[in-house]
Simulated scan of single mutants.
Amino acid sequence: MPKRIDPAVKERALRLLREHRGQYPSLTAACAAVARQERIGAETLRRWALQAEIDEGTRPGTTSEEHEQIKRLKAENARLREDVAILKAATTYVGDRCQAVA
């Protein structure tokens, strides 16, 4: 399970990355330097930076808000499928009981 990082650390790391990105030849190099300073993983920071660009609209992709909505809708869909399965089973049971009485 991924560990939770304090949102303040995430915001500070992204701010530092934005401020110092021009001093490095690549995003990866900038992430490595800032991540070392903030004591977080360089790949973690790189993924955060890419997601921040998507959320800002400067890079194509699924925004964090859209991702949360998709996740919520998938969970709701699973619950509804389970409800339908229960109702089908109940309908079959009641139908069988009615035929037995008749």
Rank of each mutant, 00 (worst) to 15 (best):
R59T: 07
A52H: 04
T44D: 08
A13T: 00
R46Y: 06
A52W: 01
L45K: 01
R47S: 10
E38V: 03
R81Y: 09
K10Y: 02
E53K: 07
D96Q: 13
Q37W: 10
A30C: 10
D96L: 12
Q37I: 03
A49T: 05
C31L: 07
A32L: 09
K71C: 08
A8D: 09
I5A: 00
G95D: 12
E68T: 07
A35W: 00
K74P: 02
A89K: 09
K88V: 13
A29T: 11
V101Q: 11
H20K: 13
K71L: 11
E53D: 13
L87H: 08
K88Q: 12
A90T: 12
R4K: 09
E43L: 14
A42D: 03
E19G: 00
N77M: 11
D83Y: 12
Y93E: 13
T91S: 08
A42E: 04
G41F: 02
A33Q: 04
S26H: 07
R4G: 02
D6T: 02
A78D: 13
L87W: 05
L87R: 07
L27W: 14
A100S: 13
D96F: 13
R47C: 08
L45N: 00
A30S: 10
V34Q: 00
L17Q: 00
Y24T: 02
I40H: 00
R39Y: 03
H20R: 15
K71Y: 08
R18S: 07
Y24K: 08
A33Y: 02
R47I: 03
I54D: 00
H67R: 15
D55A: 03
N77I: 04
H67G: 05
Q23D: 10
H67I: 04
Y93C: 08
Q23C: 09
A35T: 01
G22N: 07
R72H: 13
R36D: 07
D55I: 01
E82P: 01
R39C: 02
C98H: 13
R39N: 04
S64L: 05
R36I: 00
A42H: 02
R15L: 12
P2Q: 08
S64Q: 08
L50N: 02
V84N: 11
R4Q: 08
P2S: 08
A13G: 00
T44R: 09
G57C: 04
A100K: 12
P25C: 10
C31N: 02
T92Q: 14
R47M: 12
P60H: 04
P2K: 09
